[in-house]
Each structure stands twice: as C-alpha cells, then as structure tokens.
C-alpha cells in the first residue's frame, strides 16, 4: 500500500524532471491565480468575522452570521437586491432582443459596401470606455447646457435634470448600455446566421417565400439555439449589472432606483471602510451569481449538448 504511494510519488518526480520545462512555463500563471484570485477567496472569511485592520483577516474574531443578519435587516441592502433584479429584468426585456433584430436587419442588407460601413459603425461604441459614455450622457442631459434640454426647451418643454430623477435612471442606464453594446452583440447572431445553409433560402425562394417569410421560417428557427444559449448566459449573469457604469451615472438622489448590490458593496466597503459587512454582501452576491451561472451552464449543456465553458 505505502510502497504503491511511494512508486506514484517517484513516478511523478520522474515526470517532473523529464518535463520540467513544461511545468516552468505553467508556474507563473498558477502562482498568479493563487495570489490574485484564490487568496482573496480565503479573505471571504471576514464575512463571518468582526474584522479589524490591526488583527488582520486571520486574527479577527468570529461573529457567525451577524453581518448577514445586519444586512437583511437593512432596508438599503434589500432595496439594492430589488434594484439589481429589476435592472437585469428590464435589460432582459428591452436590451436582449435588440442585437437579434439588428443581426436580422444587417443580414437583409444586400449592398455590400453599406452593410460593411453600417456594421463598422455599429460595433464602434463597444470600444469606447464607460467613462466616456457616462460623460456623454451627463453632458447631453445637463439641465443648463445639455443638448437634450436645449432641444426640449426649443420645443417649449420644461428643462429637466434627468440624472437626479429616480424615474429616469433605469431608462437612461439601459438605453445608453444598448447604444454601447447592441451593435457589438449582434456579431454572435450574425455568425450564427452565416452558418445557415444557403440552399435553404434558395429552395424557399423557389417555393415563393417572401423575404419576410424567409426570416420567420428559416433564419429565426436556424439561430434559435444561439438565441437560447445567449439568453441562458444572460440569465446566468443576472446579478452582474454593469456597476462600473452605474457608479458613474448614479447619485444619492437616484439611489432609490439605481443602487444595486455591487454599488452598495462599493459604498459600504471601499468608501465606508466597513469591510466585513461589505464582504458579507459580496459573498451573498457571489453565491447567487455562482448558482445562476452554474445552473445556466447545466441547462445549456442539456439543451445544446455543447456547454458554454
């Protein structure tokens, strides 16, 4: 029994000696993952501790689920959960179909030059930083000098400071995200459409199908698997609202609708230095995210026999 283990160990030793170059190549990456991604996972324990900077992560005293109790008694945290899901839900309804529609429309363009130009422009905003997008939004919506209010004013409407009105936050957030990403996200669907067998269209045309009918009868059914996979990914990432962008756009006046779990963590943890409570909120967030992503992957594995990861 023990000699068996010994054999195994000397076996591994031999392999390492023979292939040391390979393991040397691997080492930096493994070390990086341990230092920067796995060590923080150990730091998650402060969600259950009364964290003090002096005692450090490991020296702080355990408090069990106290922080979670605090959190779930905190209206603001509950509100942030609600906001997270609402923003996700609204973008699912409004932003998700947009790239599909765009891809179908691009596909119906037969003028090669126009098609290429249109796509080039449509993909561009994806590469613009959220800071600039937020800057544009802030500047366009500025109550005194922003173009939107200038135009409203010109037509006799009252000027509004959109960004301080909670009612406008979600439309502004989702709308500008769509402006930034819808074009780029259409690539996935265009790739799926490109994979449709052209003879399907030819035979449909021989049968007298109009272009509209071809979209409904051929293109859409053909890319349905892709649509379903993307939908599942989207649902899997439900808690991953673009908080880096939200932080740029929100202000206390709109927290009521704009404060999501991640921004809550940011404020409480990084700005308020209540590390332990913020970590508890983060752990809650990560666990929900993990469950969603994991189930999404399982479901898509079942549906498509090709897994996402």
């Amino acid at each position: 029994m023990s000699s068996n283990i010994n054999n195994k160990i000397t076996g591994i030793g031999q392999i390492l000696r023979k292939d040391w170059q390979l393991y040397l190549l691997l080492a930096p990456m493994v070390i990086w993952f341990i230092v920067f991604l796995y060590t923080p996972m150990a730091g998650l324990q402060i969600a259950f501790k009364d964290f003090s900077l002096f005692k450090g992560i490991y020296g702080s005293t355990w408090v069990g689920f106290e922080h979670f109790q605090t959190l779930f008694n905190d209206e603001l945290f509950i509100r942030s959960i609600g906001n997270t899901f609402l923003i996700s839900l609204y973008s699912l309804v409004f932003a998700f179909p947009m790239p599909i529609i765009l891809a179908l429309m691009f596909n119906e363009l037969h003028h090669a030059m126009f098609k290429k130009t249109a796509q080039t422009i449509a993909y561009l905003p994806h590469f613009i930083s959220v800071v600039i997008v937020a800057g544009m939004v802030v500047s366009f919506l500025s109550p005194t000098t922003g173009i939107v209010n200038l135009v409203l004013d010109y037509f006799g409407f009252e000027k509004t400071y959109f960004l301080t009105n909670p009612d406008y936050f979600r439309p502004i957030f989702i709308g500008s995200t769509m402006w930034k990403e819808a074009g780029f996200e259409s690539i996935v669907y265009l790739a799926a459409i490109a994979g449709v067998n052209p003879s399907l269209y030819e035979s449909a045309r021989v049968d007298g199908a109009s272009r509209w009918q071809q979209i409904w009868r051929i293109t859409l059914p053909s890319i349905l698997p892709t649509i379903i996979i993307m939908l599942i990914i989207r649902i899997g990432n439900l808690v991953e609202v673009g908080f880096e962008y939200i932080i740029l756009l929100y202000q206390p006046a709109t927290f009521e609708t704009s404060d999501v779990i991640s921004t809550f963590i940011y404020r409480v943890g990084l700005q308020g230095s209540q590390y332990d409570i913020a970590t508890a909120a983060g752990l809650f967030n990560a666990v929900i995210a993990f469950i969603l992503v994991y189930s999404a992957n399982r479901i898509s594995r079942k549906l498509s026999s090709s897994s996402l990861w």
């Binding site: 923080p40 963590i265 943890g269 990084l270 913020a278 990560a286």
Partner: peptide, 10 residues
C-alpha cells in the same frame, strides 16, 4: 469565471 471573491477581499 464562475466564482470570485468580490471587491472587498480583492
């Protein structure tokens, strides 16, 4: 890709 410790521990 599925699980990360989050902002504060990082």
């Amino acid at each position: 890709m599925w699980f990360h410790a989050g902002m504060i521990p990082f």
